[in-house]
């Protein structure tokens, strides 16, 4: 089954819409769903032109396609456990929060908190991801626990904050405080980033570019060969009695 949701133009286009109801399994029982624009509850078809092709019995067989100006659409795919969501343009904050399975593919850019606290499944973002991609929640200790997030563009600050499991791959550059408080999992940044793996406890962080503002409390161990690259290996943040590993191609201290 393929559900296509095309965003309708709205008068107050700038008010964000929260649409956690947009997950494949909900469409198994029809399209009579509700979304919220600010403090107003709206029917799905007040916001989208909805079209459904085919049918399905299982969430795995449902694909939801979002088109139009969806950059202010928040919480799409929250608690996704199966099926697929394809976003043709950009997507708003909190896309794929808490997801445990299924796939989200974003062709444009993703706003903050993409895949926050996700436990499983796959998110592919073909554009850039904003701050707090694959991170945790305020006050929480564990961020993403499983699954995969792959960003082909750049990622913002606090990428994979408190990462506890799973894999995060960014093909472009990442921002400041990349992989802060990491406690598990794997983070790979193909480009440059700033202050990676600060205060890390565990896990592995790879920076194939240059680590700017390198934290002074990592201990240099030597060089390793990884994926055909020569990387410098550091052991986890001494300030935090850490045991993690940080591999960088190059680094600069702020001295």
């Amino acid at each position: 089954m393929k559900v296509t949701l095309a965003m309708k133009p709205a008068a107050k286009w700038f008010i964000p819409i929260e649409a956690e109801s947009i997950v494949p399994k909900n469409f198994l029982s029809g399209t009579d769903l509700r979304v919220w624009r600010g403090n107003r509850e709206l029917r799905l078809d007040e916001v989208f032109s909805v079209s459904v092709e085919g049918d399905a019995d299982r969430a795995e067989d449902v694909e939801v396609v979002l088109s139009g100006d969806t950059f202010r659409l928040k919480r799409v795919g929250e608690y996704l456990d199966a099926g697929k969501i394809t976003v043709l343009g950009g997507i708003g904050m909190h896309c794929g929060n808490f997801m445990s399975g299924g796939t989200i593919e974003i062709h444009g850019n993703a706003d903050g908190w993409l895949g926050r606290e996700m436990a499983g499944g796959t998110i592919v973002c073909r554009g850039d991801a904003a701050d707090y991609c694959a991170s945790g929640y305020r006050g929480g200790r564990k961020g993403m626990k499983g699954g995969t997030v792959e960003v082909f563009g750049r990622a913002g600050d606090f990428l994979a904050e408190s990462l506890a499991g799973g894999t995060v791959i960014v093909h472009g550059d990442a921002g400041d405080m990349t992989g802060a408080e990491m406690r598990g999992g794997t983070l790979v940044v193909h480009g440059d980033c700033s202050r990676p793996a600060a205060n890390m406890k565990d896990g592995s962080c790879y920076v194939y570019g240059t680590a700017r503002g390198m934290i002074p409390t990592f201990k240099k161990i030597g060089t390793v060969q990884h994926d055909g690259r020569t990387l410098i290996r550091f052991s986890g943040d001494l300030a935090n009695r850490g045991k993690g590993n940080l591999f960088v191609k190059g680094y600069e201290y702020l001295d």
Binding site: R195, N199, I215, P216, T217, L238, A239, Y253
Partner: peptide, 27 residues
């Protein structure tokens, strides 16, 4: 922009790991 690095360095020094700290940290 160097506060974080200095704080990390101080934490390590308080734990008795001064020897890994670079000669200068953020000035």
């Amino acid at each position: 922009g160097g506060d974080y690095a200095v704080l990390s360095a101080l934490r390590a020094i308080v734990q008795g790991k001064a020897d890994t700290i670079p000669r200068t940290v953020a000035g």
